[in-house]
């Protein structure tokens, strides 16, 4: 659960080349089933990493729910993103256990190092910094999670070190 929610301005962004036909099988799967708006939105986000603006129209046509209502649902839940995200999402845990072990220091250090605010993506599209509520490994607090990897017992410095190493590895990898 993201603690900081998406702000409602400037976030529906048309992206060139978002291939909406990818959604067809998803829509077919839930056709005629009541209560499937949230799974549809989750499926769409799974396809694109976020919910592109034109997808709202397409979902509206498919379900008969007005795009305003769909938009209302998408903005209500913290899970849905309406902007593209970086290739790596850094989730810094701000659950109670992490908070009392100074999780703020980690977010602050990463903000400084990556030069982004909470919930923002770096200019190179590599990292998105997020605050999340409880990743459920409280005994390792404070914790952050990048992809499938969890890093525990962190300090601001250690967190920055992890990101630096990831950046170095990215540089070494051949570009696609």
């Amino acid at each position: 659960m993201r603690i900081t929610r998406l702000v409602s301005e400037n976030h529906v962004q048309e992206v060139d080349g978002a291939d909406l036909s990818l959604m067809d099988s998803l829509i077919a799967k839930y056709k005629g089933k009541s209560g499937s708006l949230i799974p549809l939105l989750q499926g769409t986000q799974h396809l694109y990493g976020y919910i592109p603006g034109p997808a709202f129209e397409k979902l509206s046509e498919a379900t008969g729910i007005s795009s305003a209502d769909i938009y209302g649902v998408a903005t209500f839940y913290a899970q849905f993103r309406l902007k593209p995200v970086g290739r790596n999402i850094i989730k810094v845990c701000h659950g109670t256990a992490c908070h009392v072990q100074n999780a703020n220091a980690i977010t602050d250090a990463l903000k400084d190092f990556l030069e982004v605010g909470d919930g923002e993506t770096t200019a190179d599209g590599e990292f998105t910094l997020e605050s999340v509520a409880c990743l459920g490994c409280c005994s390792l607090a404070p914790v952050m999670m990048i992809g499938e990897n969890t890093y525990g017992k962190l300090s601001g410095k250690l967190a920055v070190k992890v990101i630096k190493e990831m950046k170095n590895n990215l540089c070494k990898q051949p570009q696609e």
Binding site: M1, R2, I38, P39, Q42, F76, Y77, A78, A133
Partner: peptide, 8 residues
């Protein structure tokens, strides 16, 4: 199973 979408 129905997956929640993040709302306390």
């Amino acid at each position: 199973v129905k997956e929640g979408a993040g709302a306390f």
